[in-house]
Design a protein around this nucleic acid. Structure first.
Lengths: 189, 189
DNA sequence: GTCTATAAGCAGATAGAC
DNA sequence: GTCTATCTGCTTATAGAC
């Protein structure tokens, strides 16, 4: 029984090490350029073991890539635009410094891997619905969509393209600069 | 000579047809998932002909993908922030309806194809430099970068992810909604 | 349970027939 | 000049030895 527990633990540790490596590689080079072989080598295991544990490359991607939870839909009524702004900025501020690698993995492949694209589309759709539902004024859905695409653009620029101009800019500073911009979209002029 | 001209014309037409097909496929599914074979089939020619004309898949991508020209740097002095805003919005307004497929091809692959990433980084870097140079106030480069990532985000949302909320929204409307947002970033509060 | 060996398929690229 | 045939390499995935 002692033995069994140790083996189970070992297996869980190995599985976690494989997942970590996969996340890092999917985040770094995307779905297509990540190979089972490279993940296995990186994790120090046999390629067949990866298949044994996760079944297929697609399933490994599903296990390794994940988007953050949806907008917390507590109340349904229209919120204060300022509150919407602050919530989105807080989300972005947290994310931009420490986005989980699983999210970067998903975003890295969202333009070229159809299933990642669909996952991102669905998730953004829910965010847009919830945020738009909380906005006053005209075309709330469109303005919510623009808020979300702005966030996506910033994350892409800083974390995926790693633009020089956004390197070494503290998240707080970015949030401060974006605040009036978000406010303008949120209160619908 | 008549014959020669006809052959040269034919060849140019064939080359253009291959390029059109390649652009469409690169824009639709990205670099990795586009195959020489599929391009050839789509253009109604032999795969070997594509290699004959363009040398390699990389070279075909280079020939088919292109970003728009840089920001027109006429004067160097700080411009009116409103003017910067209007120029960027005009660029986006034109683009969003009719972005050249060659640009979409480049953007589709910018997160997963290293050379596309570098091309986009370089181009955005030049835009950021020029726009930042034209902005007054604090951290002009950072604000310029945020303006550019916002544009990138919107294009991705509407043309590459094809978000429902942005479908069928006229470019004019998007530009109008983004104007105060851009203005806030451009005049630095 | 883990790994060796290999299957099966598809890619880009090339050599040479016509 | 154009296409057939093939080479070489790489991938995911599997079957079976240990």
């Amino acid at each position: 029984m002692e033995t069994y527990r140790n083996r189970a633990d070992r297996r869980r540790q190995t599985e976690e090490r494989i997942l970590d490596t996969a996340r890092a590689m999917f985040a770094a080079v995307g779905y297509e350029r990540t190979t089972i072989r490279a993940v296995a080598t990186g994790a120090g295991v046999d390629p067949a073991l990866v298949m044994q544990y996760f079944g297929s490359k697609k399933d490994l991607f599903v296990a390794a890539s994940k988007l953050p939870d949806d907008w917390p839909a507590e109340g349904e009524g229209p919120l204060d635009p300022d509150e919407v702004t602050e919530r989105l900025l807080a989300t972005l501020g947290l994310k931009i410094g420490g986005i989980p690698e699983s999210s970067l993995a998903m975003m890295r492949s969202m333009l070229t891997h159809p299933e990642a694209a669909q996952t991102v589309r669905d998730s953004l759709g829910r965010w847009i619905g919830a945020v738009g539902n909380a906005l006053p004024g005209e075309d709330p859905q469109v303005r919510a969509a623009l808020l979300m695409t702005t966030m996506v653009g910033v994350i892409i620029g800083q974390r995926l393209l790693e633009l020089d101009a956004l390197r070494d800019v503290p998240p707080d500073r970015l949030v401060a600069l974006l605040r009036p911009c978000f406010a303008a979209l949120a209160d619908g002029k």
